[in-house]
């Protein structure tokens, strides 16, 4: 039909409906654009910038940018992937990411993206922030060392669980995640392991206790296939 709208993603036509973002339309058409803070169940957040693409010479966040007829979008190019790599490197040094002993290893989106985008070293100097864990809750551990500030837990707790347990506070390198309780301890909230917020963290911050490493290496989300493939399989489901 002549009224289907299209844009070009890396030279390939992508059909979209009005109101869809570049990332949503691309996903629907089977094309992967890397992302971390975006989640299909939530409005775009636009904080991680991993979904960066080039449109008419400008860098934009594809998770937030509405698709437009005839647009030419560059995504899977050395330039864009280079930008993404640098963003990942910054995320790695801002927190304490020690993949070898992290139980999320193999299931972690940050690590999976680093592999997929061939991030070979951290490149920048590590900040080594001091972020003690919160182990007060009987069923869930918070290891703040690995937070990438995507606010998915904040959004899930507020918008789905109706509990508003998490918040981000401070800015810049002092930014960190806090628990909304006077004591600041997760044990002093009505947080439950079945909350959506307890099951949404893309990295290894919000962890179910005493289950670490129960799933063998080799059988984890990104062990056999890269995140670019796994993410698209999820769309089909």
């Amino acid at each position: 039909m002549s009224d289907t709208k299209k844009f070009l993603l890396d030279g390939k036509p992508v059909v979209f409906q009005d109101g869809q973002t570049i990332l949503e339309a691309a996903r629907q058409a089977g094309h992967y654009i890397p992302h971390l803070c975006w989640h299909p169940d939530f409005p775009a957040h636009g904080s991680c910038k991993l979904c960066i693409v080039k449109v008419g010479g400008r860098h934009v966040s594809s998770c937030a940018m509405p698709a437009k007829e005839g647009m030419e979008v560059e995504s899977n190019t050395p330039e864009m992937n280079g930008e993404r790599r640098a963003l990942l490197q910054m995320l790695f040094v801002e927190g304490n990411h020690f993949c070898p002993s992290c139980e999320k290893s193999g299931n972690c989106q940050l690590q999976a993206l680093a592999y997929d985008l061939e991030m070979l070293s951290a490149h920048f100097n590590h900040f080594y922030p001091n972020r003690p864990v919160d182990a007060s809750h009987p069923d869930v551990l918070l290891d703040f060392n690995r937070c990438i500030f995507c606010e998915l837990c904040v959004r899930a707790s507020r918008d789905i669980d109706g509990k508003n347990i998490f918040a981000l506070t401070d800015r810049g390198i002092h930014k960190h995640l806090v628990v909304n309780a006077e004591s600041g301890r997760l044990a002093d909230t009505d947080f439950a392991a079945s909350d959506r917020a307890a099951n949404i963290c893309p990295v290894g911050v919000i962890l179910h206790k005493r289950q670490g490493f129960a799933r063998p290496i080799g059988e984890r989300d990104y062990d056999a296939k890269p995140i670019s493939v796994v993410a698209m399989e999820e769309v089909e489901k």
């Binding site: 070898p100 002993s101 864990v133 551990l141 206790k209 005493r210 289950q211 670490g212 490493f213």
Partner: peptide, 14 residues
């Protein structure tokens, strides 16, 4: 010290 116990068997391999 201060790490959850279930991480330890993996961590100490280093």
């Amino acid at each position: 010290q201060g790490r959850p116990y279930w991480e330890v068997p993996v961590m100490v391999q280093r």
